[in-house]
Amino acid sequence: MSVDKDTVRRIARLARIAVPEARIAPMADELNGIFQWVEMLGEVDAEGVPAMTSVAAQKLKWRKDEVSDGGQADALTQNAPDSEDHFFIVPKVVE
């Protein structure tokens, strides 16, 4: 599988990263180098092997579905690039 310039543009869009046009071709080359190397996994017959879903032997912990924290609007908005009255300010989304 080979990554072309359109694929780079498409995944950059999916990842919400503005990649300048001049970087598209070099990025395609870099990704191709990496994906060609990864192709070696094709040598391994992993048919019937379960995919790893947890590296730890223990089961994920459960807790009661109840509020344990909150009321921290000041702390939550203190690092915002733009906020007012505990709201985050963004460009207009809906006309």
Partner: peptide, 10 residues
Amino acid sequence: KAQKLRTLIA
């Protein structure tokens, strides 16, 4: 595929 390989490595 990678997650299966991870099982084999473990």
